[in-house]
Computed example of a mutant assay.
Amino acid sequence: MHSDSVRLKLSELLDANARFDLAARGTTNHCPMALVALAEMGASPDRLQAFFDMWEREYALSAPPVDATISRNDWKRHVGEREAFGALRLCFLDWIVDAGAVPVITAVLQAVPFAPATQAFHSLIRLAYGIEAGHAGEIAAGLASLISSHLPIDVSLDKNPRAESADAGFDHAARALSGTVFAGSSITARLRAVASDVRFGTAVLAPPASAALLDDLARATIAAYWRKPDFTLLHTVTATRAARIVFAELHDSLVEQLLPGLWVALSAAYAMIGRPANTETSFPNIAVNWSELCQMAVASDDDHVIKMTYTCLCEDRRQPSPLYLASAARLFEPSKA
């Protein structure tokens, strides 16, 4: 974010986004996440406003009125209640104003099974963007989404062999359920179908013994996405970065408890879409640089293109790989995602 005017406009629009429902026409509410990514890639206040106006006109659904009050001592009774999103958001927002964001995030994640697959990973991603923007309302919305749409994948890893690497673990899950067509018109529905398949409990291995598991997951997810530019795999890349942002706010002992849940959710995504092609990684001649790609993303109205470009930019800065620039550049080719 390059100026106070951008920060002020972003905050104004994130506040205004509270009038939108968790769902949108044919999708979920990507607007606040895309706005943060746009701002970080250099969008002007006018461009942020234009994207918000486009989203409101073409995708947004009005949030239903919140008629009930949920107390901070009572929110756990509403896990999995989609209609409680608005009341949960207000509950968490009030709590954050009183106690600060990190204590509330910690309390919520400690209290319920970690479910990063919720809303096709968008609940976790929205929470991360809220943290990145320092916006209490969006942090509250991310937590409310995680709780109201809660999609845990209940798998015990205690007796399962340990994966030698992230790539090997994902490949094992994909092989075990190879050929299965999971019913559902959305990523969430198909992830739910994977979670209910009794074979998945043995298909998913325990995560590799690595002191840098998130880095291993980041390498594995971008490599798989490069080999197979599947829409679900795109979400594994953005979700892994989101987990990094959220986990950075938490105590190491809590992160250690949450990591297996992330591993299981990502493994479910791989089991759902099947194995990416096992081919040599080769790269085309990339004729654009990051500055040009960011300009192209800022001009786009495609929320997934915006967020994926930003994710690739940030991950490449942290752990450089030609896969990030190549994957981001491919987003702007015809018929690519």
Rank of each mutant, 00 (worst) to 15 (best):
Y324F: 12
P322Y: 03
S149P: 00
L331V: 14
T27S: 15
E138P: 01
K159L: 13
Q257H: 05
N29V: 04
A287S: 15
V288I: 00
A212D: 15
P45G: 06
I147W: 12
S253A: 15
L266T: 04
H122F: 07
R19Q: 04
L262V: 01
A271R: 10
F85A: 05
R318K: 02
P334V: 03
P320W: 13
A211Y: 01
S156E: 14
L234M: 15
D167S: 08
A133V: 11
A39V: 13
V246P: 00
D158P: 01
D21C: 03
A136S: 14
T188G: 12
T27Q: 12
R317Y: 02
Q49D: 06
L313P: 03
Y129S: 13
F20G: 01
P322M: 05
A120P: 03
A326C: 13
E249W: 12
S71C: 11
A328W: 10
S282D: 10
T202A: 14
K307H: 02
I222W: 11
K76A: 12
E58S: 12
A34F: 12
N278I: 12
P32G: 05
A140H: 06
H122A: 08
R175F: 10
E315G: 09
S300C: 12
S44I: 06
N29R: 04
V66Q: 02
I222D: 09
A239Q: 08
C314K: 13
A101S: 13
V104N: 04
V237K: 02
A133P: 11
L93A: 03
A166C: 08
A209D: 15
R190N: 09
C91D: 06
A224S: 13
A133L: 12
H2K: 06
L325Y: 08
R317C: 04
P161N: 10
V246N: 01
S178T: 13
L191E: 04
M33C: 02
A120C: 07
G179H: 13
A248P: 00
L157W: 04
E333D: 14
F92C: 05
I96P: 05
E249I: 08
